[in-house]
Simulated scan of single mutants.
Amino acid sequence: MLMSNTDRPARLHYMANGFRVLAPGDHVVCAASNARIPLDELRYWDVVGQRPYATAQLASEALAPR
């Protein structure tokens, strides 16, 4: 029986120039907004904190020095 990755969150390892899939899925959840991000639309993440972000603005706000 084939397993479908539809509607299943992926587990990723974020690197400076991309990410590696550790557990298959079709999306990740934004660390700031809890929005669902399809893997083919994922563009922003925190390498150190290993967290994805839905938009550049959310990533900038989350990663800004306090």
Results as ranks from 00 to 15, higher is better:
Leu2Arg: 15
Met3Tyr: 11
Asn5Phe: 13
Asn5Thr: 12
Thr6Pro: 00
Thr6Asn: 10
Arg8Cys: 00
Pro9Asn: 03
Ala10Ile: 02
Arg11Pro: 00
Arg11Ser: 08
Leu12Thr: 05
Tyr14Pro: 01
Met15Pro: 00
Ala16Ile: 04
Ala16Gly: 00
Asn17Gly: 14
Asn17Thr: 12
Asn17Trp: 11
Asn17Cys: 05
Gly18Lys: 02
Gly18Asn: 01
Phe19Ile: 05
Phe19Gly: 09
Arg20Ala: 11
Ala23Asp: 10
Pro24Gln: 14
Asp26Trp: 09
His27Trp: 03
Val28Ile: 07
Ala32Asp: 13
Ala32Lys: 06
Ala32Ser: 15
Ser33Ile: 05
Ser33Asp: 14
Ser33His: 01
Ser33Tyr: 00
Asn34Met: 08
Ala35Arg: 06
Ala35Asp: 15
Ala35Cys: 08
Ala35Glu: 15
Arg36Ala: 04
Arg36Glu: 12
Arg36Pro: 01
Pro38Met: 10
Pro38Arg: 12
Leu39Ala: 09
Asp40Asn: 13
Asp40Lys: 11
Glu41Phe: 07
Glu41Tyr: 09
Glu41Val: 03
Leu42Ser: 13
Asp46Phe: 00
Asp46Met: 00
Asp46Lys: 02
Val47Met: 05
Val48Ile: 09
Gly49Glu: 12
Gly49Lys: 15
Gln50Phe: 02
Gln50Val: 06
Arg51Thr: 05
Arg51Asp: 02
Pro52Thr: 02
Pro52Ala: 13
Pro52Val: 03
Tyr53Met: 08
Tyr53Ser: 09
Thr55Trp: 03
Ala56Gln: 14
Leu58Tyr: 05
Ala59Gln: 14
Ser60Thr: 13
Ser60Val: 07
Ala62Lys: 04
Ala62His: 03
Leu63Ala: 03
Pro65Gln: 11
Pro65Glu: 14
Arg66Ala: 14
Arg66Val: 15
Arg66Gln: 12
